[in-house]
Measured scan of single mutants.
Amino acid sequence: MPEGSASLQLAVGDRVVYPNQGVCRVSAIDVKEVAGQKLTFVTMRREEDGAVVMVPEGKVLAIGVRKVASAE
């Protein structure tokens, strides 16, 4: 991610809310080559049905992904 860009610090195992998809758990953060460029992807699995969603790390905030609020 370019320096100075806002990002959401995620780790494998974090629970997040993905708008219009529901609650997901981060299952992987991997670098993949797409069209000759190396990009970091956040892979999330929906808790409702296990569907897998992959989002480029740089788009996580723009999409509206946020961490699940704690009970505290």
Score class of each variant (00 low, 15 high):
E72V: 10
G50D: 07
K67Y: 08
M54E: 11
G58P: 07
R66M: 11
V68Q: 06
S27E: 15
R15K: 07
V55T: 03
R45P: 01
K59L: 15
L61F: 06
Y18T: 05
V12Q: 01
L8P: 08
S7Q: 12
G4P: 12
G36W: 02
I29E: 00
L39K: 07
M54P: 02
M1Q: 13
V60Q: 04
S7E: 10
F41I: 14
L39N: 04
E33P: 03
A69I: 12
V53W: 14
G50N: 07
L8T: 09
V52T: 09
M1A: 12
I63C: 08
G4I: 12
S5P: 12
G64A: 08
Q21Y: 15
S70V: 11
I63Y: 06
F41H: 02
S70R: 10
V31D: 04
I63S: 13
L39P: 01
N20K: 09
Q37V: 13
V68T: 07
K67T: 07
C24L: 09
G36E: 03
A28L: 05
I63L: 14
A69F: 05
M44V: 04
A11S: 12
R25N: 03
L39S: 05
D30K: 07
L10C: 00
D49H: 02
V34Y: 07
A6F: 10
G50I: 02
S27T: 15
S5D: 10
V23Y: 14
L8G: 09
V55D: 03
F41C: 02
E33N: 08
M1T: 12
K32L: 14
D14K: 01
G36M: 02
P19T: 04
E3S: 11
V16T: 01
E57V: 14
L61C: 07
Q9M: 09
S7H: 12
F41E: 03
V31A: 04
I29V: 06
K38H: 07
P56I: 13
V26I: 14
S70H: 11
P56R: 06
V55F: 08
R15G: 01
A35S: 09
V23Q: 03
N20M: 09
I63V: 13
P19Y: 07
R25V: 15
G58D: 15
S27L: 15
L61T: 14
Q9S: 10
S27F: 13
A6Y: 09
S5V: 12
E48R: 12
A69Y: 06
G58Y: 15
E47I: 07
V52D: 05
A69N: 12
S5I: 12
A28P: 00
